[in-house]
């Protein structure tokens, strides 16, 4: 199983990661704003993540760490 970790305060909520995910399991959460005041990206289904890191490659802010 792989894991997508978003560095909460580095994410700018630009949504580019959501366009890159082949499983379409990256989205923007609308519950908690970070210190920049933006809603951040998250993985909607950890079990479905294949750790391909495409979201991280698309991220302009190095705000995504992939573990597997």
């Amino acid at each position: 199983m792989a894991k997508m970790n978003v560095i909460f305060d580095r994410c700018k909520g630009c949504e580019l990661c959501t366009t890159a995910c082949p499983k379409q399991i990256v989205a923007i959460q609308h519950e908690k704003r970070n210190k920049e005041g933006v809603f951040t990206a998250y993985c909607t289904d950890d079990d479905a993540c294949i750790g391909c890191a495409m979201c991280a490659m698309m991220c302009p802010d190095c705000a995504i760490i992939i573990e597997n």
Partner: peptide, 30 residues
Amino acid sequence: MAVKFQRPHSLCDVRLHYCAGCTHGIIHRL
């Protein structure tokens, strides 16, 4: 679990000043 993808060492661990979605950040990382 092992880290598969993270910030490269030669990119400083700081917040980039670029606007949200600006692709400068991707190119810096590459």
